[in-house]
Structure formats: structure tokens, C-alpha cells
Design a protein around this nucleic acid. Structure first.
Lengths: 203, 203, 203, 203
DNA sequence: CATGAATGAGATTTCATTCAT
DNA sequence: CATGAATGAAATCTCATTCAT
């Protein structure tokens, strides 16, 4: 009704969207610092500067906050998708991607949030699906680059591009995770990883 | 007190050790089924057929139960350490190990427990250390095999044996984890993995 | 303000009155289905298709909604008052009334709403008064019929018309209530009730 | 095991039973004073002098406390059942019962608790069943007395004993309830009730 | 008159842990 | 060693109501 004229309600709508975002950001920080289960809904509300009741006006429950964070994580992947969609030589693209992804996962908070989501994904199907979907995009883009490289001679033709794409991603993630646990850096593992990788895929 | 005389109480000691083990087994099952945080101490006690108070006679608290499970996990690795210590050709040994480890992680409960431990390991240093230690044994044994293979010509000499050992393990584990989340089997991923691996390390 | 000029706003006034009624109807349904305490103000607003804030423009609070429903219930009694004010023979009038009232209370929702009101009436004086007032009208009309019947020989002269009027009403209501709880029908109890009643009051 | 010797554990068992009873009594008082829904579990615990958590060691939840109170109410009926099982003349027995039951319901707390239970009984099947069961015993005993009276000439033979038994009880209860709401006494209504009743059932 | 975001107290329930027996 | 009652803090979520727009 009133919605038809111009764009009214937009200001309020925007404010609401920002509130939601504020809450999500606060929740993310809490989950990273203390873990999903160690974080109370009150903690999130307090950190977001929002009343407890109002948080429930914006999200049905704690679980849904996590789910929305998982969905938000998808956006974080766009730079990498862009990179993989670029027109550089496949071999270079792969190297660039590995370096960039490793740099991203060099920030412990990104790794920790991923682990937190992983651990919930096992028993919460909706989060599991988001999780799988997130990785699917990345794998597909990477596999496509691998196929290009197989055509132009960068990579060996006996490669299984889909499986290899997955393994490349997994190698970077695992390195990052191991770095967090053993309190070293991903950077220190990058050389070994790249060497291993080149041997595995190049022709 | 009673401990001072010779070796008395042995029968009782054994009974006590079994109680501890019963509790640990029950806890493992609970953690696998419902997750560490979703499992209450009461749940563990009930499943173990032990009274709540008695559980606290055997373990200082819930956290310590988890820690002991993490320690117990180490024992699970001995078959693989034995395999790696065998005298087969390095190339064959690696293949056998990958197959065996993949088979082990083909059971979802093993993967789930690992994830559960992982997620706790981030914020609980003691568990983190156990976790790292567990994998260190395996990595070392695997690296040793790689070195043998580098000597005898099975593997390329430019290999970084330690980094590669870690990555081999990580690839198997990641495949297993992905299998659990996407409800497929590790077996289906084994071919791709082996191919990737051979290219990466063989000379 | 606008009210001062002639009779303007009449159309709006009617619209407002209808809104109030919409809300009351929605509330009644909610209270019947889920009970007064199990019903939230949000539930009422949603069911009425009204915004939460707007409901508070029409009613000071949840309690007042219930109070107005109680007042509304009074209107439901007019058919019975009319019946009792009719010119049939007293004995027939009583029988007709009992049958009609039983039929009305044969609908479980009427009984349930009554119980809901009853239960609130204990601790909320205003509702208690409305409740008593509702029944007072009915009792008075019924007592008047009984008095006529005592004059014309239909009923025994030793009757206490006021007390008897109350008891007649109570018997019907109690039968209806019992029918709801034991999931039978009032109709099945009507024969026994009528026989009992005839013996009690007829001369 | 240890239970076999003598009667051990009895002391603790008795203490536990008393705790349960303490809680139930406290709950009853709360429900009577403030109503079931206005009473919080904390209120009950505080009034019982028990910690909140411990209350949940004894009862699964608030609802179950109410259910057990409903069950307990059954015991309250034994004096009346005894009275009805006595060997007095049926006519006298009925009169005595009505007087005694009216006296019992003369205490507002008994009426209020009944209403509170009633109102829950509508939507909670288990409480509904307890409620019906409670009244069934009483009705049966009363019907039996009516039958005796029909045999010995005290009561008219055209009586439907079961229906009449129900109605007698309902009349007393309704009178008591009405007394609470209009803040008079049951006693004041007893004369009218008795007269009505005698006319209804006596031969 | 209409909207729904905001509030914060309060609801019920669970938890790891302690301790008297 | 064994038991389970006791504790009280903390968990998540709901509620009637207010108020700026």
C-alpha cells in the first residue's frame, strides 16, 4: 500500500537490516572468542548493545544466528571465486589462489569460526548444507581452472579435476588449521604445500 | 594406606580400572552421538550404569573425561604405527597405510569423535597438546617411510618428508570428514586420492 | 477534536468499532483454543490481523480484552431471557429453557470459555463481578417463572424460587462441563436431568 | 542387594518422601493463593525451603507437581467414601454426606484448588483423567446409597441412581463455588439445597 | 489510528559439581 | 568406592507493555 509511493519505509528497513548485522557481527566475535556453546544469547545481546528480548525480535533463536553467520560466510568466498574466474594462466591462477586462500586462513579467527561451524554442521542438517554449499562453489571454480590447465598443457591430463580441486582446498585448510593448533603460521607451511601440489598436478 | 602392604588390592584395582574404562566408553558413545556439549555428566553416568557421585570418584570432572579419551585415542594409532614400521617397500607401505587409515576413518564415529576433540582442542590447551602429540607420532613414522623411499628411489628426492607426511595424513582425514558431511563413503574418494598422491611423491 | 463538529467521523467510528470487535473475536478464539494464560497478546494481534501496537490503541491491556469478552458474554444470554419472558405455561417454559440452555452449552467452546472466565474470576474482582452479574439476570428471570408456576399450580408452593433457579442453571452447566471433560454429550444427560428436575420442583 | 537385609535405606527413603511432600504442600499453597499460572517454580521452591535445582530432582517439571497434587486430592475423598459406606439409613446418609461435603467445600481453598485443577484439566489429558477418576469413586458410592434407598422405600423407584448421584455432587460443588465468587457461605445455601434435593429424590 | 522494534523482567529448565550418608 | 540429594548459577526463550515514527 504505502510501499508503492517512492520508497518509503526504506529508512526503517535499513535500520533494521543494520541491527541484524550488528547482532550477527557481535555473535561472530563471541563465537570466535569463546566458541558457540560457551557463548550465551545474553553475551551476544550485550556485545551487540541490544536488549535480550530485541535479539529475539530479529532472530528466532541462537541456532538461527549461527545459521545466518554460516550463510554470510559464503560472501567471504567471492574474492576467491573472482580470482579463479580470472584469465591468468591456469598454473599461475592455482598458485595465486593457494597463496590468497592461505593468507585468508592465516587469520586464526577465520579458521576458528570454520571449525566452530564444522562441529555444529555434523548434527544440524541446515548448517551442514550451508557448509557443503559454500565449499561446492569453490571446488567447482577450482576444478574449472584445473580443466583449463589440462587442456593447455599446464597440468597432466590424467588428473581427476573434481577430486583434485577438493584436495587442494583441503590441503590449504588443513595447513591453516594445524597452524592454529600448533601456534605456528600457515606461511611457514606454504613452501612445502606448493611443492607437493606442483608435483601432484603439473604435467 | 592399603596400598603399602605388598601388592594387595590388586583385584580391586583391576575392578576400579574397569570401572574407569566403562565410564570412558560410555562417554565416548555419548560424545559421538550427541556431541561433547550436548552430553551431560548425568548422561555419561547413566549410560555407564554408574551413579553420578561415583563418576566423580573416578574423574575430577567432565573435562578430564574428554582429556582421557583424547589420550586413549593414541592407542588407536598403534596398528598404523606398526604398519609404517614394517619392512615392505616404502611405496607399498604408503599405499597400505593410506588404505588402512581411510578404512579406519570410514567409520563415521571415528571422524565425529575427532571433530569433537578438535573443536575442544582450540580452547583447551591440554587437549590441544594431546591432539598434536597424537598426530606427531604418526607424522614421524610416515616421514621416516618417506625418507626410506627417497633413498631407495621410490620417491622423488626433492620431497620435504615431514611436510609431505603431514599432508598425506591430512588428505585422508579431510576426505573422511567430507564423506561424513556429504553422506558418501571414503572408499569412493580413495582412487582420486591415491592418484593425486602418487603424482605428488613418486619419482 | 473532530468529534465536536456535527457528527463527523461516524464512518471512521464504525470502522474502529469493527476493529475492536475483530480483536475481541480473535481473542475469544485464542482463549478457547489455548487458554487465557497460554495465549499471548501477539497471538491475538496476529489472529486478528492487527499490529501489536495497534491492539494497544484499542485496549489498555490483555486483561481488559478478557474483561470485555466477559461483558460480551452477557449478550449471549438474551435469547434465554426472551424465552423465559415468554407467555408459555411455566412448566413448559422451564423445560424449554433447560433444553435450549443445554443445547447452547452443548458446544464445547461455550463451556471452555466459561471455565476460562471462571478461573480468572477468582482473583480478578472485575471479572468476578461481570460473571456474577451475568448469572444474576438469568437467575432472576428463571425465579420469576418459578414464582408464576407456584401461583398457577405448576410447581409446589414450598419451593424457594431463587435458590431453585440457581440450582437449575447450575445443573445444566455442570452437566455440560462434565460432558466436555468426559467427552460425551450433554444431550445424553438431558433425560436424567429433566426427570430429576421435575421431581424437585413440580407439585 | 543391600536392600535385602532388614530395611536399609528406609531412613533416606523416608526423608526423600518427606521432601516431596514438603514441595507438594508448598505448591498447593502457592496454587491456591496465586493460581497455577501465576505461580513460578521458584516460588514453590522458595516456599518449600528447597533449592530450585533440587525441586527438579524430585519432579520432572511444574506440570507434574500439579498432576501429583491432583492425585493427592483423591485421598481427601476417603472420609466421604467411608461415610457413604456406613450403615445408616440411606436418607440419613445422603443428608449427612451433603452436609459433610458442603462443610468441606466451605473452605474456599478447597474450592479454589478444584477450579484451578479444572481449568488445567481441559487441556492436559492426564489431569483430566485424574479429575474424572476422583469424581467417579464418589459418584459410584453415592449411587450405591441411592439404590439402597430405592429398595427400602426411602427414595422413589423411578430414580436414575447414577445420574442423580452425579447431580447431587454437582449441586453441592456448584453451591460452594458460587459461594466463593459471591463471597457468601455455603452454609447459607444448604437449606435450599436440601429442600430441593429431598423433593427430587424422596418417594 | 497504525506499525513493529525495543525493553527487561521473568518464565522453566539444565548443568557441573559437592557432600553427607 | 558408592550413592543420589542438594546446590545455585546459568542457560534459552517468552511476555506484556511502551514508544518513536
Amino acid at each position: 500500500m504505502t510501499k508503492d509511493l517512492a520508497d518509503p519505509g526504506t529508512k526503517r528497513d535499513k535500520a533494521v537490516a543494520q541491527r541484524r548485522r550488528t547482532i550477527l557481527d557481535a555473535a561472530m566475535l563471541c563465537f570466535i572468542e569463546n566458541g558457540y556453546h560457551q557463548t550465551g544469547v545474553r553475551d551476544i545481546a550485550k556485545r551487540a548493545g541490544v536488549s535480550l528480548g530485541n535479539l529475539y525480535n530479529h532472530f528466532p533463536g541462537k541456532h538461527d544466528v549461527l545459521a545466518e553467520i554460516a550463510a554470510l560466510e559464503r560472501a567471504e568466498l567471492t574474492p576467491f571465486l573472482d580470482l579463479l574466474a580470472g584469465s591468468d594462466a591456469p598454473a599461475k591462477t592455482i598458485d595465486d589462489f593457494v597463496a590468497a586462500y592461505a593468507a585468508y586462513l592465516g587469520k586464526p579467527e577465520n579458521v576458528i569460526l570454520t571449525i566452530e561451524l564444522t562441529s555444529e554442521a555434523i548434527r544440524k542438517p541446515d548448517i551442514g548444507e550451508l557448509f557443503v554449499a559454500n565449499r561446492r562453489d569453490l571446488t567447482a571454480a577450482l576444478a574449472s581452472v584445473l580443466r583449463q590447465g589440462m587442456s593447455n598443457g599446464d597440468f597432466r591430463t590424467s588428473l581427476d579435476p573434481d577430486a583434485s580441486a577438493q584436495m587442494i582446498i583441503e590441503l590449504v585448510e588443513a595447513a591453516a588449521f594445524r597452524a592454529v593448533l600448533s601456534k605456528t603460521t600457515v606461511a611457514s607451511k606454504l613452501a612445502g604445500l606448493t611443492d607437493f601440489l606442483h608435483a601432484a598436478i603439473r604435467s
